[in-house]
Amino acid sequence: MNKFFKKAVKQTEFYVFLIIIVLSLVIQARSGLFFANNNIVDLLRSMIVPSIYAICALLAFVSTGPDVSFPMIAALSSYLALTVTNRLGLGGAPWIITFIIGILFGCLMGALNGVIIVRYKFPSLIVTLGTSSIFSGILLGAFEAERMDLPQNLAAFGKASLLTVKNAKTGLGSTLPMTFLIMIVLYIIAYLVLNKTIMGRGVYAVGGDEVSAERAGFNVKGIRFGIFVVNGGVAAVAGLCYAVMSMRYLPTEYAGGEMIVIAAIILGGTRMTGGIGTLKGCLLGTLLLTMVSNSLILLGISVYWQRVFIGAIIIIGTAISAIQSHAGVKVKTRLKKEAA
């Protein structure tokens, strides 16, 4: 237990966890509504889309560098998936068919990112900024996408609920949609691949030292290309989940989602220079930021002040991990001197 605790103290995730506990207690004390069943379900509901995005951001950061194109890939591939479903009259088919169509389009767009980044060794930030703008132009310009209703299969999927709760005191109710399961499944798959397969460890190895990875025998280019293709697919799933949960497709609601997600995973301990980051950290970071944006209303803090809060939390959170690594360096130099 002691060893476990010692290890935990070294991890950024642990501090995020502490902040979450403290914040939830504060909100509970002030409003008495935080631990209400409907609030918890609301929180989980709001986490679904950002935490799926967080997988994209994590994979990109750990292996290569930032990917900011996932919201626009989500928007465009969702649009294409819905349009294809409608045109081919697949509205009666199971919902998963529409998802698969979306994933295929998403992977295709991710592959475009991957080719440019891997083949030409361009920085991923610039490339994904560029493709992001292209995808958005195609969506709103070429396709003139507008809000549209969901095909029958997705509408039904959206209405189905995993869990419905009602707060006895306030009479407020809340529903946990089926998309929550999609998120859980994605996280389980990602966990297994990243931790239990050699390829998954390769993602970390490539992010740690590209040249060493190549010498050890990892297929560096293959891994990086694969990451961006997978990211496209995962983004498409997030996009469709968002549409399902809003019960309609809203093309203009996607843009700008990347920043808060990236902030969440950095908060969760993902290192911007690559090689380090966990799914646990993604979930905790997302939970924290979602809590802040959802629950400050309970404290009666205005929406504008929320932004200040989120900004402050991002800076403090990142500072903690920076200080940690600083402290690490100091200890190291001291040990070195003692050894000499």
């Binding site: 740690g208 030292d209 040249v211 060493s212 090689g275």
Partner: peptide, 8 residues
């Protein structure tokens, strides 16, 4: 550079 992975 020892060809190592510092993050692992």
């Amino acid at each position: 550079d020892f060809s190592i992975f510092p993050n692992l």
